[in-house]
Computed example of a mutant assay.
Amino acid sequence: AIPRTPDIADLTALVEAFETLREQVANQLQTRIKLQEMSGNPDQTERHKQESKPESIIELERCPRNERSDGQASEPAHEAKRAFPLGMVLKACPEIMNYGPDGAVRSWRDLMIAAVTVRSMLGVYPSAYQEACEVMGPENAGVAVACILERAGHINSAGGYLRDLTGKARQGKFSLGPMLMALLRANGFDRRGVL
């Protein structure tokens, strides 16, 4: 319990307790991911293959639904799955870094771990996040969650918002680019990096 008029020692202890809790959650998530990767379950093995070679699996998933009359995959299908540079995402969405392993995001894997933590924290159902991963690709779904976190104070239902974005992405009516650019500008960056 926090006293009515906490002193610096009380607040320091509280911050340390929250940091310990955050580390425990991050460690649990990492352990769970490792166990899923090591599992012999065919469904989980398939998911591991998808994460190991995201571009080739993405192309296989998207081509049948987006073939042109000449049998070639249409360009928007490939573009819809392409992730943005991680550095750009972190400049646009710096809050997500607090939820990465050890309080940092150093790779796409770290971003996706952070996105799962944030998804849960924002009350987004696992099914909504899974659908976003299937439609946008796992990296872009993680970026969408990072964007939602940045604007959480302006969004009534994070889960409903993610489902709406996913539906628009499925119809080819949504791209993360404009959302990221708006957040970059809000954080003092322009297209070249710094204003």
Rank of each mutant, 00 (worst) to 15 (best):
L165H: 06
S127P: 00
A146R: 02
W108S: 05
I148H: 05
N98G: 14
A92V: 14
P85F: 02
M121G: 01
M121T: 10
A169E: 06
P85T: 04
A114E: 08
F84M: 11
R170H: 09
G87K: 15
D102E: 14
A132T: 09
A80Y: 00
Q130Y: 10
E139K: 12
G160Q: 11
D102Y: 13
A83E: 09
H154P: 00
R82Y: 02
G87E: 15
T166R: 10
A114C: 11
A128Q: 11
K81P: 00
M112A: 03
R106L: 13
D102I: 03
V116Y: 04
G137S: 08
H154M: 14
I113S: 09
N156D: 14
L149S: 09
N156M: 12
V135S: 03
Q130G: 00
E150R: 10
G100Y: 07
I155G: 02
A128C: 01
A152V: 03
E150W: 04
N156K: 14
S157T: 08
S157M: 02
S157Q: 09
S120C: 03
R82S: 11
R106I: 03
G160K: 12
V145H: 04
G153Y: 01
A80H: 06
H154G: 01
D102Q: 15
P101M: 12
E95P: 00
R151I: 02
E134G: 04
A132W: 04
G100R: 03
A92L: 07
A104V: 12
A141K: 03
E134A: 10
M121A: 06
G137F: 03
L111Q: 07
G153H: 08
P94E: 03
V105R: 08
I96R: 01
S107Q: 07
V143G: 01
R151W: 00
G103D: 09
M121W: 02
W108D: 12
K91H: 08
T117W: 10
M97R: 15
D102T: 12
K91R: 15
A104T: 12
L165F: 07
P126V: 10
S127V: 14
V135W: 01
N98P: 00
E79R: 11
R163L: 15
A80P: 00
E131D: 15
M88G: 01
M121S: 04
P85M: 02
V116M: 13
P94Q: 07
L122V: 09
A169Y: 08
I96T: 09
G100P: 11
A132H: 05
G159Y: 04
Y161M: 12
I155W: 03
E139I: 04
